[in-house]
Amino acid sequence: MNARFYAYNFGIPLACAALVFLLFDMTRIDIAFSNLLFDPLTQTFPLDKIHLFEKITHKWARIIPNWTAEIALIGAMLSVVWPLVNPQKHQRLGAFLERSKVAPVLRFTADHRRDFLFVVVAFAVCTGVIHFLKSHTSVYCPIETTLYGGKMAHIEWYSNFQLFHEAGSGRCWPGGHASGGFTMLALYFVGRRYQWRFSSALLWGSLLLGFIYGTTRVLQGWHYMSHTFWAAIFVWLACLLTALAFYGRARLERPVLQKHEQCLPAQTPSGLEIPFS
C-alpha cells in the first residue's frame, strides 16, 4: 500500500515533469504554439489588447483562490475562540453565543482547526515555491522577448537557474496565475483526510481551474503553455508534502468512502456501533 501511494502521488508528477521537459523545454513546441496566437502585422497578441478579457480572466478570476485563502485564515483565527470562551465556566456567555447562532460556527472552526491551518500553510508554501522558482530562473514572458516585439532575450529556465541567489528580473516561469488556480488542490487533501466521496471532484476541478487560468495567459502572450504544466507539478508536490506534514500518509491513503459507507455506523468486534467522525 505504501509503495502504491508514493508511486501515484510522487511518481506520476515526476514522470509528468520528465515528459514536459522533453516535450516542451527541449523542443520549440511552446514557441510554435505562441506563434499561432501572435499577429506579426501589429506585433501584438490580439487578446492582450482586449481589456474585458483581461479583467475577467486575470483580475476577477483571482477572487476564487483569494477568497478561499481568506476564509481559511479567518477560520484558523476563529478556531482559537471557542476554547477560550469555555462555555462550561462562562455559561452566560455560552448561552448568548448559542442564541446568536455564533456558537455553531465557533465549534466548527475549533473542530477543524488543523484543516484551516493546513489550507493557510499550503497556500503559503505553494506561493513561496513559485516565487522562489520565478526569481531564481529569471525567465521573461513571451511578450517581453525579442521573439514577439519585446527587448529581452528568450531563454529556458534550466539554462539560467541559480540556487542560492536571484538570477535576474524575469518572473515568468512557472506560471504564477495558473498556480493560483492549482493551489485549490489543498482542498482535495482536506477531502481525502475525511474520505469524502467528492474529493476527486475537488482534484479535477482544481486542475481544470489552474489550466484555465494558465491557458488564458498563454492566449495573451504572457506565458508559454509549458509554464502552466510546470506550475501544476510544483503546486501538487508542495500541497502533497504539506498534507503529509499535517495529516500523515496513513490518513491520506485511506480509500474514499462510498455514500452508504458514510451513512452507516462502523461495527466493533463487541457489537458496539461507532459513527464515522
Rank of each mutant, 00 (worst) to 15 (best):
H154Q: 04
G180D: 14
W196V: 07
A250I: 05
L209K: 09
R193S: 01
H227P: 06
L208D: 09
Y194A: 09
P255W: 10
R217L: 12
S199Q: 13
S206Y: 10
Q195M: 13
Q220G: 13
E144L: 04
H227E: 10
C172H: 02
A186C: 13
E253G: 06
A201C: 08
A250E: 15
S159Q: 08
K151L: 01
L207P: 00
R249L: 10
Q162W: 11
V235H: 02
F229A: 11
A231E: 08
T242R: 02
A186I: 12
H223E: 06
T242G: 00
W230E: 07
R197Y: 14
L237Q: 02
V256I: 15
W204E: 02
A245C: 03
H165R: 15
S159M: 05
A243Y: 01
L187P: 10
V256C: 05
G150N: 00
Y148L: 05
W204I: 11
R217N: 14
N160H: 15
G221W: 11
A245R: 00
E166V: 02
S179G: 11
T216C: 15
R171G: 05
G170K: 03
S200C: 07
R249C: 14
S200W: 13
P174C: 06
Y158P: 04
G170T: 03
G175E: 12
G210A: 11
P174R: 09
L252T: 08
V256S: 03
A186Q: 12
G221S: 14
L241E: 01
P255A: 10
Q195E: 13
N160M: 04
S159D: 14
S226W: 02
L203I: 11
F234G: 06
L163M: 14
A243R: 08
F211W: 08
A178C: 03
E166P: 00
L147K: 01
A238D: 11
H177D: 13
T215K: 03
H165N: 12
Q220N: 10
A186L: 12
A186N: 10
E144C: 02
G149I: 09
H154I: 01
W157K: 00
S199T: 11
R249P: 05
G210T: 06
L208R: 06
P174F: 04
G214V: 00
K151T: 09
I233A: 00
G205L: 08
H165P: 00
V235L: 13
I155L: 10
W173N: 06
H223T: 07
S200N: 14
H154F: 05
I155M: 09
W222C: 10
V218H: 04
G180Y: 06
E166Y: 00
